[in-house]
């Protein structure tokens, strides 16, 4: 409903976008160059929208629109994670004006490297949600009938917990983590959906859970009711692929678009698992 800004004098008329494409899982990837007319207030999402509408590469070949994921476009849903000029981030907040200042040559888009590519910029991030299952990131309420209000909480506790509850499972922390490595499985011939799912879950469970899930475990352990099941979450964090894999590179906290104090969560989980393990040895 609004007219857009006037273009600044030095704005380019067009700019180039290099996209690393891949037609399907396991396929070869290839670069493709697109030329996009410059508009004001563009972000990488609107660039990809223009590319989809053009369906034509710089060379003039008709090409299928680049596949990518997006949803909210205001950085709260976590969909549009990709590598923009080599750095993992949400495409919606990647503003073209700023990207072109940093890299006047153009913009380079690649899919995340730590997750299997589905197509072009779309990756399969199911492993993240499996990790949330593993650490039991929920409150074990009795049920959904009315049972009065929840426990009272101090504003201080709320202010500590709230940032953690903003995690949108975008995967930036995992992409940047040198300890989080790609797991890509392919379905065996004749393997059923359920069997493949089970094998996948098992494989995911033995690989690193990652900063996001550690932070969620800390969040729920800090909840007055959630703490009843803290032991189960800490058990999960000390299983194979647990918190011990963390290498303290602290990239997670640096790339988190929501600025969640992930390394604080990791240290808290470190302390909790230390005590938990000692208690298991000496109390049982």
């Amino acid at each position: 409903m609004t007219a857009s800004h006037q273009s600044p004098a030095d704005a380019p008329r067009t700019f180039d976008v290099r996209v690393l494409r891949q037609d399907g899982p396991g396929g070869a990837s290839y670069w493709e160059r697109h030329r996009v007319p410059y508009e004001h207030d563009m972000n990488v999402i609107s660039v990809l929208q223009r590319i989809a509408a053009q369906s034509r590469s710089v060379e003039g070949d008709e090409v299928a629109p680049v596949a990518w994921e997006c949803c909210c476009l205001e950085e709260v849903c976590g969909s549009c994670t990709m590598l923009v000029n080599g750095k993992v981030r949400q495409a919606c907040t990647a503003l073209v004006d700023r990207l072109l200042v940093d890299e006047p040559e153009g913009i380079e888009l690649r899919p995340m490297g730590k997750f299997p590519v589905v197509r072009d910029l779309v990756v399969e991030r199911q492993r993240m949600f499996r990790a949330l299952e593993k650490v039991r990131a929920w409150i074990d309420v009795d049920g959904y009938y009315d049972a009065g209000p929840g426990p009272r909480q101090s504003p201080e506790d709320q202010e500590v917990a709230y940032p953690l509850s903003q995690c949108m499972s975008c995967g930036c922390c995992l992409e940047a983590c040198p300890q989080y490595t790609k797991v890509e499985l392919t379905r065996d011939p004749g393997e059923s959906d359920a069997d493949f799912q089970a094998r996948q879950d098992q494989t995911y469970d033995s690989a690193f859970v990652g900063a996001h899930a550690i932070s969620q475990a800390v969040l729920f352990n800090s909840h007055p009711t959630g703490t009843y099941n803290a032991g189960k979450r800490l058990d999960a964090l000390t299983q194979e692929g647990g918190i011990q894999i963390c290498g303290n590179a602290q990239n997670c906290v640096a790339v988190c678009p929501k600025e969640i104090p992930l390394t604080t969560s990791i240290a808290k989980a470190g302390r909790q698992t230390t005590w938990h393990q000692l208690k298991k040895w000496f109390d049982q």
């Binding site: 750095k87 940047a176 894999i245 290498g247 590179a249 990239n251 790339v255």
Partner: peptide
Amino acid sequence: VIIRGGLPNVSSYPLSGNVRYSLQ
């Protein structure tokens, strides 16, 4: 064994903590 399990990425993320991770 631990080193073999990681994938240093200082060139993409030249952050002090990451540099130290690789230096370690």
